[in-house]
Design a protein around this nucleic acid. Structure first.
Lengths: 363, 363
DNA sequence: TTGTACGCGTTATCAG
DNA sequence: CTGATAACGCGTACAA
């Protein structure tokens, strides 16, 4: 080990064995006498042997890591999912490389290229902006891609998703149950299926109630876009007593805009979000939302990917159930003749921690 | 290229040249006739040649990527820094691997091991929990580590940091200027130097004003810890009209707790945070805070790391200047005989967008 | 200006 | 049970 760390050749020399025997002993494969294994282990420890992952990858044309591509690390929903994915990956002995793409197709393509060039053939992708053709090209050349929570273009990759449509339905149903009729919606980017699905759930439930869902306001899942969309909604003059936002971040932004306009939440306007990010629990008022099953999503996606890497067939896609979490941002609509200065403080003083969770079966 | 992609051997065969000539042509080094270069380029494109990064790493004992280790991807301050680091790294033609450690020393050690085993020798670390000895061991064996924003144990790695102490000083000064005397502090984890430095800035300014700083409440930089710490502060009975939190997330949690307790911000209590995360701009009330120079931090850190990887000497460490950003969460303290039911609505209705930025020189 | 031969560290195949 | 030998794809002295 002249320059850097010891290699299996150094161990071979030290033990008087051959490199191949050392390699086998280290990995515990083949039929070896207990003695040799012990000898190898001992000198490996003594010489501080560290396997060279690069050499191994070159020989094996593979690696023990997977990549996790995500469009916007600044969206608080993702970090939670990242943690869950890492946890599950570790369960399989795999390390996770995070690739932050900002939703830029070029960045995605570059990352994919880089990963292929590094022999990393497993990718969990939270929303891909590249074309279906490009995805198929990659899959065709051996890369395994599992879309997580957000479908890939044209269903070109296996996907594991929550039931966004049911979530939209449940959120809207909750507001209707509370007595609201004028329910506005701020949706996410039009090109994302999660946006359309959440909107469809909303639309379906509205129609079932005999109400015209109209056209949603459009946001891009950022807090600022929620803020802006709510302002536009207010200035449009279209009356509404409740607001279903396609994600929590936009809901938070919308609440900020509503309050700045002197509208109390939930006193005058009720707001429902989507995702159940940590932040929503500590917001004032605490956010009523649709909870996505993070651990389950991560588990299913990673297990699926590992299966694919082992050459197994992809199972039929399934939709994971979401839950309604009722907190403080929703209430009954104000009576037609609303008292003008509804005390905003009421929501702030409300006892905290009380929350109610309901899943699909309860509907 | 039987199995997968084309190699330089395939190109050699296709062009009638030797592998080494192809290798040189591809990288544009050595003296080659223009014709050969063109021929190689052409068939590289035609055969869809993609360099194998693994083989290259093995031959070169190096790689063109650096790692970015961070303790908690869920803290919104980090994603912004991550983006800045990635941008700067790309400027040097390097890709960034994100390693999320959850602040667990074992995870850090494992990642470091993994990186070394992958020939990735450059690391930007935002706070390392492993021991100084371990860090020195790594540095001793060729790994280049630059601590970003948070110092590494015992100054064992080069570090690039904002002037946290000045930030604490400025935040406290701002509150004193507004007329506050009873200023409480919620600090971060005791083992992090950023926590102590921000606290020291607070302490120094308080003493300059002839006020006993007392003992700070303790949080861990999460929103929930800020919420809890504020509750304890309230229940402790110790009177205060202003609160300086060691980061924005805790400030947001504290505000939530204060309002739940019926205390208006800033009507009854003024709050200052630290970091200037995006969320603070859209919170109600918008958060007064200390802004860290993200781009500068990232630029200095990445450039420094790249320099180290090239064998250059580390320059003297420098402290980057922070700024005070005045928004809506700070105001003058209420008059001694405060009207009990200060209208919380006032803050919500306050015009938004007005903010004032001040840097060190203004003090 | 271009080609040959070997090394990087590991795994797999085939003998023994 | 263990040991040679080749291969993975690329970079680089050294030779021509």
């Amino acid at each position: 080990m002249p320059g850097g760390t010891a290699t299996i050749y150094d161990l071979a020399r030290a033990t008087g064995l051959s490199p191949s025997t050392v390699s086998r002993a280290l990995r515990g494969i083949g039929d070896l006498s207990p003695g040799t294994v012990a000898r190898v282990r001992e000198s490996a420890a003594r010489l501080r042997y560290r396997p060279n992952a690069v050499a191994r990858s070159l020989a094996l044309r593979g690696s023990d890591s997977i990549a996790l591509m995500l469009p916007d690390i600044a969206n608080p929903f993702f970090p939670a999912l990242v943690k869950a994915v890492q946890l599950r990956a570790r369960h399989h002995g795999m390390t996770v490389l995070l690739c932050n793409t900002e939703g830029v197709p070029e960045a995605e393509a570059e990352y994919l290229e880089m990963l292929a060039s590094r022999q990393i053939q497993g990718v969990v992708a939270m929303g891909l902006a590249i074309t279906a053709d490009e995805i198929r090209r990659r899959v065709g050349s051996g890369m395994k891609i599992v879309a997580l929570d957000r479908a890939a273009a044209g269903g070109s990759a296996v996907s594991v998703q929550a039931d966004h449509r049911a979530g939209g339905w449940m959120a809207t149903d909750h507001l209707l149950q509370r007595g609201h009729r004028a329910i506005a919606h701020i949706s996410g980017p039009a090109q994302l299926t999660v946006s359309t699905e959440r909107w469809e759930g909303y639309r379906d439930r509205m129609r079932q109630a005999g109400i015209d869902p109209g056209t949603p306001a459009r946001g891009d899942f950022t807090e600022s876009s929620g803020h802006r969309a709510a302002q536009e909604l207010i200035h449009s003059g279209r009356p509404f007593t409740a607001l279903f936002c396609a994600n929590d971040l936009m809901a938070l932004g919308a609440i900020s805009a509503l309050r700045s306009a002197g509208l109390g939440v939930p006193a005058q306007i009720s707001v429902v979000g989507f995702d159940d990010i940590e932040l929503g629990r500590y917001a004032v008022p605490a956010l009523t939302t649709i909870r996505q099953p993070l651990e389950a999503l991560a588990r299913v996606a990673v297990d699926l990917l590992v299966g694919l890497l082992r050459g197994e067939e992809a199972p039929a896609p399934e939709r994971l159930a979401v839950e309604l979490v009722v907190r403080e941002s929703t209430a009954a609509p104000p009576r037609p003749v609303a008292e003008k200065a509804a005390p905003l403080a009421s929501s702030g003083i409300a006892p905290r921690g009380g929350e109610e969770v309901r899943s699909r079966e309860d509907f």
